[in-house]
C-alpha cells in the first residue's frame, strides 16, 4: 500500500475565520504502482490540503495516514524519517515554474536529489535522466531557466521532482496557464511516465475534458468531503456536477444539446470528438 487515509480531518485555524475544517473524515487508498488519478473539486473544497497530506507536508488534526508503512498522526514522531517520505511521494505545486532559482537547468534539477546524500556526479546523471523523461534534450542542461518558455519551465520544475525518483507523483494543476497544444503535450507526457515507469500519478485539475479522456479513476472533493471515488463516466452519470460546482466534458454537453433539440436519442457518454462523431452518424442512420 502506498498511501492510506483513515478518517483524516484537518482544521486550519486563522485569526479572521476561527477554526476552518479543510478536509473531513477522509478515507482513501492509493496504491504505489500504476495508478493514474484525477483529483477535482471547486475552489476551497480541500483538494490541495488533501494533496499536502500525501507527503506529510502537513499532519492530520484527527485520524491517521499510512504512507509507505509510516503511520502519520497529529503528532510528529521521532521514529519517522519524514525526509524519506518526501522522497517517495513527490509534490509539485501550482505554477512550479515560479520556484526555479538556479542559474542553469542542470543545477536546478540537481537541487532536490542533492538533499538525499548522493554525490554530485550521481545527481548529474539523475538530472539528465529526469530532463529526458519530461521530453527535453541534453542541450537544455546548460541553459538559464529564466530564458525558457512557460511550458519548458514547467517541465524543468517537474523534472526537479522526478529526479528524486518518487514512487508517487502528486501535481497541483500542472496544465493551468498552458495553451491547448501545451496542455495535451504535458498530459501525454504524464501518461507516458505513468506507463513507462509504473509510477502512480495524482493530478489536480478543473478540466473535465482531460478527466474524461485520460483518467480511469477520479476523486471528487466537495465542501471538505470526498464525495466520489471511481470511474469518470460513472461520475458523470450519477452526480449532478453543477450542484457540486463542477462542469461536464464538452462532448457530453454538446450531445445532450442535440438530444434535446432533435430527439436523436444519442448515447451522450463519448470521450473523444471521434467517438461523438461515430455516435451521431449511428443515431442519424447515415
Amino acid at each position: 500500500m502506498g498511501i492510506r487515509f483513515n478518517q483524516v480531518s484537518y482544521d486550519y485555524s486563522s485569526f479572521a475565520q476561527g477554526l476552518y475544517t479543510a478536509i473531513k473524515d477522509i478515507n482513501l487508498e492509493i496504491t504505489e504502482k500504476n495508478e493514474f488519478i484525477a483529483l477535482v473539486g471547486h475552489t476551497g473544497s480541500g483538494k490541495s490540503t488533501l494533496a499536502k497530506h500525501m507527503n506529510a507536508l502537513i499532519f492530520p488534526t484527527s485520524g491517521s495516514l499510512e504512507i509507505f508503512g509510516n503511520i502519520i498522526t497529529s503528532k510528529r514522531s521521532k521514529k519517522i524519517k519524514y525526509n524519506s517520505i518526501r522522497k517517495k511521494v513527490g509534490l509539485v505545486f501550482q505554477f512550479p515554474e515560479y520556484q526555479l532559482f538556479e542559474e542553469t537547468v542542470e543545477k536546478d534539477i540537481m537541487f532536490g536529489p542533492m538533499n538525499f546524500k548522493i554525490t554530485r556526479d550521481e545527481a548529474k546523471i539523475l538530472a539528465k535522466e529526469a530532463l529526458n523523461l519530461v521530453g527535453l534534450d541534453d542541450t537544455y542542461l546548460t541553459r538559464n531557466p529564466y530564458n525558457l518558455s512557460g511550458g519548458e519551465k514547467k517541465r524543468v520544475s517537474i523534472a526537479g521532482i522526478l529526479a528524486m525518483d518518487p514512487d508517487i507523483l502528486v501535481l497541483d494543476e500542472p496544465t493551468s496557464g498552458l495553451d491547448p497544444a501545451g496542455k495535451r503535450v504535458l498530459m501525454n507526457l504524464f501518461k507516458d511516465i505513468n506507463e513507462k515507469t509504473g509510477k502512480t500519478i495524482v493530478i489536480i485539475t478543473h478540466d473535465m475534458d482531460l478527466v474524461y479522456q485520460y483518467f480511469n479513476r477520479v476523486l471528487v472533493m466537495n465542501d471538505s468531503k470526498l464525495i466520489y471515488d471511481g470511474l469518470p463516466e460513472q461520475l458523470f452519470k450519477e452526480k449532478d456536477l453543477y450542484i457540486n460546482h463542477l462542469d461536464y466534458p464538452n462532448t457530453i454537453k454538446v450531445l445532450t444539446y442535440l438530444n434535446q433539440k432533435l430527439n436523436l436519442n444519442l448515447n451522450v457518454y463519448q470521450k473523444t470528438n471521434a467517438d461523438a462523431l461515430l455516435e451521431i452518424k449511428r443515431a442519424a442512420k447515415l
Binding site: 471547486h42 460546482h245 462542469d247
Partner: peptide
C-alpha cells in the same frame, strides 16, 4: 484561467 468552472462561469 485559475478559477474553478463555477467561478469561471
Amino acid at each position: 484561467s485559475m478559477l474553478d468552472p463555477f467561478s469561471r462561469e
